[in-house]
Amino acid sequence: MTNQESQNNFSEADSAFLCRIVFVVILVDLFFSGFSNTLVHQLQSPVLKFPYLDPVFLLMHFLHIPELVTSYKLIAWLWDFILFASATAIIFFPRKKWLIVVFIIFYFIYYIIFNSFGAHHTHSLVPFLLTPVVFLFSKKSFSFAWQGLRYFFLFAYSAAFLWKFFRFSWLYTDQGILIMKKNLAPYLYFNPNTFLASVYFWFINHPSLLQVLYVTGFVMEGLFIIGFFTKKYDPVLFIISLILPLGFWFMADALFYEMALFGLTLLSPAIIAKGRIMASIPFHKR
């Protein structure tokens, strides 16, 4: 292996380390789901479905899979148990691909249930659904699959930039304030006297600053296009990938923290290797 190749490729130990990081994040999020009352057994057999125009959702409802899983308490509990158990087992045995397959199948159905019975096809769970797939690739192909995920991530934010660019939303001077007014109305109606409310009201009284924030976010999304041509600025893009979810939270009361998981793809193999050594995690090939 040449020096250049070794800089771009992950060792087996590093890919196992990445797998562990990803599944620790997923496991923590599953606990959040428990606190959020959005695990399958907590949904109380929902009655309204929203397959809309998506063929995958239409197929799943045609097969009655979401209804079957949510209607029976025992199956719903079993579903949640397998999600937790498989995610936990993968942290200990990151090389057991069958465990990852089990997790992906169960999480995929959970993803359909969450979005269909939640009546909105959210983007937020996509990183948890797609990232585990790359750990199914062979040792040789893993680095390519990981790069593929990096390009998907670059595409997501670049597309967000391009949609705004071609819809000219960045030129409408009231775009920022109208996004905030629409999304923060419930919070400010119920809590007009908190410190955070005073911050929001201050910004609402200074709409040009909100427009600056909106355009700043738009430009930050556009910077991801650079990633298609060079990896030189990946550390900068990594930091931006952490800042953007905070921006969405502030401007629109929507916390897409799951997107930060994709940000891992912007870290070089050298940084991951250093992180693994610092964490001193032993690796057993079995």
Binding site: L53, D54, P55, V56, F57, Y111, I112, N115, H121, H123, L125, V126, L129, L130, F155, A156, Y157, A159, A160, W163, K164, R167, F168, S169, Y172, D174, Q175, L178, I179, K181, K182, A185, P186, Y189, Y214, F248, M251, A252
Partner: peptide, 26 residues
């Protein structure tokens, strides 16, 4: 604008916002 889960259109907040006569909350 055609979507097949999990490959969505990433167009968040790109549509022009029009100020409505009133906002709805529950």
């Amino acid at each position: 604008g055609f979507e097949i889960a999990p490959f969505y259109v990433w167009g968040m907040y790109s549509e022009r916002e029009i100020e409505p006569a009133s906002y709805q909350i529950y």
